[in-house]
Design a protein around this nucleic acid. Sequence first.
DNA 1: ATGTGATTTAACTATTTGGTTAACAAATTT
DNA 2: AAATTTGTTAACCAAATAGTTAAATCACAT
Lengths: 203, 203
Amino acid sequence: MNNKELENTETEILNAAKEVFLQKGMAGARMQEIADKANINKALLHYYYRSKQLLFEAVFKSAFKLLAPQLNRVLNDDTDLFEKIRKFTENYVAFVIKHPYLPNFVIQELSKNPDFIQKLRAEKNFPTIDKFKIQVNEAIDKGIIKPIEAEQLFINIISLNIFPFIGEPLLMALVNMDKESYKKLLKKRKTEVSEFIINSIKI
Amino acid sequence: MNNKELENTETEILNAAKEVFLQKGMAGARMQEIADKANINKALLHYYYRSKQLLFEAVFKSAFKLLAPQLNRVLNDDTDLFEKIRKFTENYVAFVIKHPYLPNFVIQELSKNPDFIQKLRAEKNFPTIDKFKIQVNEAIDKGIIKPIEAEQLFINIISLNIFPFIGEPLLMALVNMDKESYKKLLKKRKTEVSEFIINSIKI
DNA sequence: ATGTGATTTAACTATTTGGTTAACAAATTT
DNA sequence: AAATTTGTTAACCAAATAGTTAAATCACAT
């Protein structure tokens, strides 16, 4: 066997599957396309991952494992609140550029299968809001920020960061920009979004 | 024929198709399910709408026709900027409660078929940002709001309003709430989101 | 009533698609 | 090196699914 590149067929398959599932979703993905992209026979897919469902679950879990640390960067990390918002915003853009379809995929498949979240919750490192909540309330008590529910602030942070990527095709048309200008606009958001948030909450 | 309810088969079909397509997307929708939901034979679908693709396009256009006026409420409407942001935010929640899957559907299908936006752009009433841009720049000149690009502000407004619905299953889990509490939180956003935005930009 | 076009149906077809089988090949153990 | 286990393939299968056909029925004008 040529162990230069094909060192690990299983990984090869998972990568191909990621590519296809992330772009087309569970319903739109085709096992044949995944096999082709992995340069293997379709039967081999079923040898490694017994069914489409199981392969999908492997992809989904792998995708979520990449996303979770990003979310934890806001939720469970005890740097200063403002600094944290700045860092998260800056890093998130870089993350999505590296994995353009990932957040959309996770959200999309979760909407179509809401029970799935239960399986994730059980896993180690599932992000929780507790620490963030304490931090926000402390900042309020100290008079650093205006009163706001931690949940609402968190949703605002996430929305402002994730949606411009998920809604890209729609937003691009609405603001009447081509791909290149829109990408520039997104890069500017690395700093603008955090300032927008901090402006709103700081006293 | 019982003309009480079945006054118009074509409309009956379109409604059933909307239900199915909006929830399952193009790839996940099944013609049989649409036929069942419309209480008709599958052949009748093809009698009225020749193919799945054409039926899908009818649904998509109809969906976008509902969404466009919502967007135009921010973009093309010459009430005061702050008042506009308040009104839009308040109305948008009501809109999504009435059409829960709609925004997600539009965005999702556009991501999977970005060329599709061209067809929409040609249509009457496609929202454009021009008017909003002028309004924002005037407000900046008058010293009412801090300098900000109109495009960025628009994206912020849309993101803060749409994403909490699209990302509902994920966000619900992250903030550790059940459906009921989350719905309450969303209702609170009717006023909180606009204050969050205005706080950030006002001088 | 009857002829005509629009509407509706049951039954069918072609294709796609997830999954299987059985045989072959390569690596590993004995 | 013989035997066994692991990896890989071509060919096949059954179910699902979009789409078709041809006949039946309805609405209604003549």
